[in-house]
Amino acid sequence: MDSTQAKAILSAYRADMPDADEAAFAEALEQVGHDPELAQWFEDEQNFDEIFAGKLHDIQPPADLKDKLLALDPDKKTIPFPQPESDSSTPKPQLPGQRPWWKRSSILSAAATVAVLLGFGAVLLDPSKLEAEPELNQFYDQLGDNFRQNPKLTGTSNDLDDIRGKLRASGLRAPGALPPKVDSLAEVGFGSFSYKGTTISYVVESQGNQTFCLYLLDKSLAGNALPQDGTPVIFQQEDLAMMAWVGPQNLCVLIVRGPVEEMNNLR
């Protein structure tokens, strides 16, 4: 091993690595003891690494990130769904967010005056007990068809606020405050299509290998088929799992391919 080879190997060496005794370093380290020039280079290299590492350790997380993360604890099921403004008598607990605060705070500050946060939970209904409005059922069918054909994106973005802005700028329905676990899905893009003279906008999202689509419709379509307090209803529509709820501005329908259990994690 010549000096250049030794330097290449030692440039990856960090003495405080738990496995720094990797055999790959042994010969090069031994050579340091016999080669003063290499020893000086090695000392300089270690100094450089220490200084540069220190720069990265100056990075500090936002002060409230830890609290946001602790709120994700699956054993503390305190995550509520946002509620519409009609029920404003209940005290408003702090919403533990999965969404980053810079997105959530703006939403919450606006929603704080109109939203009341009730208890966690969704209603898992037997599809046979659903008494959806006939027209709503037609919309469910249409949404399912659209989802199966892979909704076309008119724009891509991984920022929900950005998507909101673009949808609104186009005069389309945009999602308001979302249930935290729905909010935590990763945005991919957005689009829209027309059905029965109304324009339905949607946001395509993903989690792992799954693709979700959140459709936004006129909330009057819900009629009496969905709870008006925002409680989500989960049901199976052939090969698709759907979760529908009445939000402050929109009737929201989230769809994923698979059994209803796929949706349970988002309750």
Binding site: L65, K68, L69, Q98, R99, P100, K181, Q207
Partner: peptide, 10 residues
């Protein structure tokens, strides 16, 4: 922050 949160969500 988003990536960190998503990691713990997963």
């Amino acid at each position: 922050s988003d990536l960190t949160q998503q990691t713990f969500v997963i």
